[in-house]
Amino acid sequence: TKEGQWDCSACLVQNEGSSTKCAACQNPRKQ
């Protein structure tokens, strides 16, 4: 995982660090 990116806890899609919700399932980003 690149720095600043995060993996969705629900569907495991990798998202940009600037995103607050998963691009695939709209699950909110977990801190």
Score class of each variant (00 low, 15 high):
residue 21 K to W: 03
residue 12 L to N: 15
residue 27 N to L: 13
residue 8 C to V: 01
residue 5 Q to T: 11
residue 19 S to E: 12
residue 28 P to G: 06
residue 7 D to F: 01
residue 31 Q to V: 07
residue 20 T to L: 07
residue 5 Q to V: 01
residue 31 Q to L: 15
residue 29 R to C: 12
residue 22 C to R: 02
residue 19 S to K: 06
residue 13 V to K: 13
residue 4 G to S: 13
residue 24 A to W: 01
residue 10 A to V: 02
residue 4 G to D: 15
residue 2 K to A: 01
residue 21 K to N: 07
residue 24 A to S: 11
residue 21 K to P: 04
residue 25 C to F: 00
residue 14 Q to V: 07
residue 8 C to H: 01
residue 26 Q to S: 13
residue 16 E to P: 02
residue 5 Q to S: 13
residue 26 Q to I: 05
residue 10 A to W: 00
residue 7 D to V: 04
residue 15 N to W: 00
residue 22 C to T: 03
residue 25 C to Y: 01
residue 17 G to W: 07
residue 6 W to Q: 14
residue 5 Q to M: 14
residue 1 T to L: 08
residue 22 C to F: 00
residue 5 Q to P: 02
residue 2 K to D: 12
residue 2 K to S: 15
residue 25 C to V: 03
residue 2 K to T: 03
residue 28 P to C: 13
residue 5 Q to L: 10
residue 9 S to A: 10
residue 8 C to A: 02
residue 16 E to W: 03
residue 21 K to V: 05
residue 29 R to N: 14
residue 27 N to R: 10
residue 11 C to T: 02
residue 17 G to C: 10
residue 6 W to I: 15
residue 4 G to N: 15
residue 21 K to E: 09
residue 23 A to G: 04
residue 12 L to I: 04
residue 29 R to F: 04
residue 12 L to T: 10
residue 11 C to N: 05
residue 3 E to M: 08
residue 4 G to H: 11
residue 2 K to W: 00
residue 15 N to S: 02
residue 15 N to M: 03
residue 11 C to G: 06
residue 11 C to L: 00
residue 23 A to E: 15
residue 17 G to S: 13
residue 26 Q to R: 10
residue 20 T to R: 02
residue 20 T to G: 07
residue 11 C to K: 04
residue 22 C to Q: 05
residue 27 N to E: 15
residue 22 C to L: 02
residue 25 C to L: 01
residue 24 A to Y: 02
residue 23 A to R: 07
residue 20 T to K: 08
residue 24 A to R: 10
residue 20 T to W: 03
residue 2 K to Q: 08
residue 21 K to D: 08
residue 9 S to F: 05
residue 22 C to M: 00
residue 4 G to L: 12
residue 2 K to P: 00
residue 7 D to R: 06
residue 9 S to E: 14
residue 14 Q to K: 13
residue 24 A to I: 06
residue 31 Q to P: 11
residue 6 W to D: 15
residue 10 A to S: 03
residue 14 Q to P: 06
residue 2 K to G: 07
residue 25 C to H: 06
residue 7 D to P: 09
residue 24 A to G: 14
residue 22 C to P: 03
residue 14 Q to W: 06
residue 9 S to N: 08
residue 14 Q to D: 09
residue 10 A to Q: 09
residue 19 S to W: 10
residue 4 G to V: 06
residue 15 N to P: 01
residue 22 C to G: 02
residue 11 C to Q: 06
residue 12 L to G: 06
residue 7 D to Y: 04
residue 11 C to D: 02
residue 19 S to G: 10
residue 10 A to H: 15
residue 12 L to F: 05
residue 4 G to W: 03
residue 28 P to H: 06
residue 8 C to M: 01
residue 17 G to A: 12
residue 29 R to G: 14
residue 16 E to A: 10
residue 1 T to N: 15
residue 22 C to E: 02
residue 31 Q to C: 03
residue 15 N to H: 07
residue 1 T to C: 10
residue 13 V to C: 04
residue 19 S to I: 12
residue 19 S to D: 15
residue 7 D to H: 03
residue 6 W to G: 10
residue 20 T to Q: 07
residue 28 P to L: 11
residue 23 A to K: 13
residue 26 Q to Y: 07
residue 11 C to V: 00
residue 16 E to F: 07
residue 31 Q to S: 12
residue 27 N to V: 11
residue 15 N to V: 08
residue 6 W to N: 15
residue 11 C to I: 00
residue 10 A to F: 00
residue 10 A to P: 05
residue 24 A to T: 08
residue 6 W to K: 14
residue 13 V to T: 08
residue 31 Q to R: 05
residue 28 P to F: 04
residue 16 E to Y: 02
residue 26 Q to D: 15
residue 30 K to Q: 14
residue 14 Q to M: 13
residue 22 C to I: 01
residue 18 S to C: 10
residue 5 Q to N: 14
residue 4 G to I: 14
residue 14 Q to G: 13
residue 7 D to K: 12
residue 13 V to Q: 15
residue 9 S to Q: 12
residue 1 T to F: 09
residue 19 S to P: 09
residue 28 P to T: 12
residue 26 Q to A: 11
residue 11 C to W: 00
residue 12 L to Y: 11
residue 21 K to G: 04
residue 30 K to N: 00
residue 17 G to F: 11
residue 20 T to E: 06
residue 21 K to T: 07
residue 5 Q to E: 01
residue 19 S to A: 12
residue 19 S to C: 12
residue 25 C to K: 08
residue 11 C to F: 01
residue 6 W to C: 01
residue 25 C to D: 09
residue 31 Q to D: 15
residue 18 S to R: 06
residue 4 G to R: 05
residue 2 K to I: 05
residue 9 S to H: 11
residue 27 N to C: 09
residue 26 Q to H: 13
residue 27 N to G: 14
residue 9 S to R: 05
residue 19 S to Q: 14
residue 4 G to F: 13
residue 18 S to M: 11
residue 2 K to M: 15
residue 10 A to G: 00
residue 18 S to H: 10
residue 17 G to Y: 12
residue 18 S to E: 05
residue 14 Q to E: 03
residue 10 A to K: 00
residue 22 C to V: 02
residue 1 T to M: 10
residue 8 C to T: 05
residue 31 Q to I: 00
residue 11 C to Y: 00
residue 9 S to M: 07
residue 19 S to M: 10
residue 25 C to Q: 06
residue 13 V to A: 12
residue 3 E to T: 05
residue 1 T to R: 04
residue 8 C to L: 00
residue 15 N to C: 03
residue 30 K to V: 02
residue 21 K to A: 06
residue 30 K to F: 12
residue 25 C to N: 05
residue 11 C to S: 02
residue 1 T to G: 11
residue 27 N to S: 10
residue 18 S to Y: 08
residue 5 Q to H: 09
residue 23 A to F: 03
residue 27 N to W: 06
residue 1 T to S: 06
residue 18 S to K: 13
residue 18 S to F: 07
residue 10 A to D: 07
residue 17 G to M: 13
residue 9 S to V: 04
residue 24 A to D: 11
residue 30 K to H: 14
residue 16 E to Q: 03
residue 18 S to A: 11
residue 13 V to W: 06
residue 2 K to F: 02
residue 29 R to Y: 08
residue 4 G to M: 14
residue 18 S to L: 10
residue 29 R to H: 11
residue 17 G to L: 14
residue 18 S to Q: 12
residue 5 Q to Y: 11
residue 29 R to D: 11
residue 3 E to N: 06
residue 30 K to Y: 14
residue 23 A to Y: 03
residue 11 C to H: 06
residue 2 K to R: 00
residue 21 K to M: 04
residue 13 V to N: 08
residue 8 C to Q: 06
residue 29 R to T: 14
residue 28 P to K: 15
residue 28 P to R: 09
residue 20 T to D: 08
residue 27 N to F: 08
residue 29 R to W: 06
residue 27 N to H: 13
residue 20 T to S: 09
residue 3 E to S: 04
residue 10 A to N: 06
residue 26 Q to M: 12
residue 14 Q to C: 10
residue 8 C to K: 03
residue 16 E to D: 10
residue 26 Q to N: 14
residue 11 C to E: 01
residue 20 T to H: 07
residue 2 K to N: 13
residue 14 Q to F: 04
residue 3 E to I: 04
residue 10 A to E: 01
residue 8 C to P: 01
residue 9 S to G: 06
residue 7 D to M: 07
residue 17 G to D: 15
residue 3 E to W: 00
residue 23 A to H: 08
residue 21 K to C: 04
residue 10 A to Y: 03
residue 28 P to V: 13
residue 1 T to Y: 08
